[in-house]
Amino acid sequence: MTTAPRTPAELDAAALRALAEDGSGPRLLDVRTPGEFHAVHLPGAHNVPLDVLREHRAELRHHLDEDTVLICRSGARAAQAAQALSEAGLPHLRVLRGGVAAWEAAGGPVTRGPARWELERQVRLVAGSLVLVSGLVGLAVPGVGLIGTAVGAGLTFAAVTNTCAMGLLLAKLPYNRGPRTDIGSVIAALRSRP
């Protein structure tokens, strides 16, 4: 019998801020791309992109506990990370509800680097451009408008499954990769925490 994926526990920005202010804050794992992370992140967060986390979840499992909060831009990728780590034996991780966007909206402190477009904004640009161009070219060339239909189907599938193939592809572009995440350095930093 297959069980449905467990919905991870959420923590709102105000609750996380209160934990951080008392000095005993949880470990913060940001699962966005290195490019997104270096553009803006919560102070003290460790960057472990979702694909790296999935690949090294068994190694990470030994250095994480229920005092870990997973973060992304809006909460969707962090929930996927929670599911991956749950399958590796860490069922009680928390996700920052609303992600970095909610944290910033609540006035939480952030560390900023060079500005970059968020991955979700890039997906909207590429998907919208494909639909617009295929619609315009479709006026002159029959059948080209079906590209827009395919993009719409892909976006619908992405919403239903809470995944995004276009986002995964865009994350592999050099612009989004940023500095490579060294899992050994992340684990060493997690070990050094008292």
Score class of each variant (00 low, 15 high):
Thr3Asp: 14
Thr7Leu: 15
Thr7Ser: 15
Glu10His: 15
Glu10Gln: 14
Glu10Phe: 12
Leu11Ser: 05
Leu11Ile: 14
Leu11Ala: 05
Ala13Arg: 04
Ala13Pro: 03
Ala14Gly: 07
Arg17Thr: 11
Leu19Tyr: 08
Glu21Met: 12
Glu21Ser: 15
Asp22Gly: 12
Pro26Asp: 07
Val31Cys: 06
Val31Arg: 03
Arg32Phe: 01
Gly35Cys: 02
Glu36Ser: 05
Phe37Ile: 00
His38Lys: 01
Val40Ala: 03
Gly44Trp: 00
Ala45Gly: 00
Asn47Asp: 07
Asn47Ile: 04
Pro49Ser: 08
Pro49Tyr: 07
Asp51His: 06
Val52Asp: 03
Arg54Cys: 05
Arg57Cys: 14
Arg57Gln: 14
Glu59Ser: 12
Arg61Val: 09
His62Pro: 01
Asp65Lys: 02
Asp65Trp: 00
Asp67Phe: 04
Asp67Tyr: 04
Asp67Glu: 11
Thr68Cys: 08
Thr68Leu: 08
Val69Gln: 11
Val69Asp: 12
Cys72Ser: 10
Gly75Pro: 02
Ala76Tyr: 07
Ala76Thr: 13
Ala76Trp: 05
Arg77Tyr: 02
Arg77Phe: 03
Gln83Cys: 12
Leu85Ala: 09
Ser86Lys: 10
Ser86Val: 10
Glu87Gly: 10
Leu90Arg: 14
Leu90Pro: 11
His92Gln: 15
Val95Trp: 06
Val100Thr: 01
Ala101Asp: 03
Ala102Cys: 02
Pro109Trp: 03
Gly113Gln: 00
Ala115Trp: 10
Glu118Trp: 10
Gln122Lys: 04
Val126His: 06
Ala127Trp: 09
Ser129Gly: 15
Val133Gly: 15
Val133Thr: 15
Val141Gly: 03
Pro142Ile: 08
Gly145Phe: 12
Gly148Ile: 06
Thr149Asp: 09
Ala150Val: 14
Val151Glu: 09
Val151His: 08
Val151Gln: 07
Gly154Thr: 04
Leu155Gly: 13
Leu155Arg: 06
Val160Asn: 06
Thr161Pro: 02
Asn162Asp: 12
Thr163Phe: 06
Cys164Phe: 11
Leu169His: 02
Ala171Trp: 00
Ala171Val: 00
Ala171Cys: 01
Lys172Gly: 05
Leu173Lys: 01
Asn176Trp: 08
Asn176Lys: 11
Arg177Gln: 14
Pro179Gln: 08
Pro179Glu: 08
Thr181Met: 01
Thr181Gly: 02
Asp182Met: 01
Ala188Leu: 13
Ala188Trp: 13
Ala189Trp: 11
Arg191Thr: 14
Arg191Ser: 15
Arg191Ala: 14
Ser192Val: 11
Pro194Ile: 05
Pro194Asp: 08
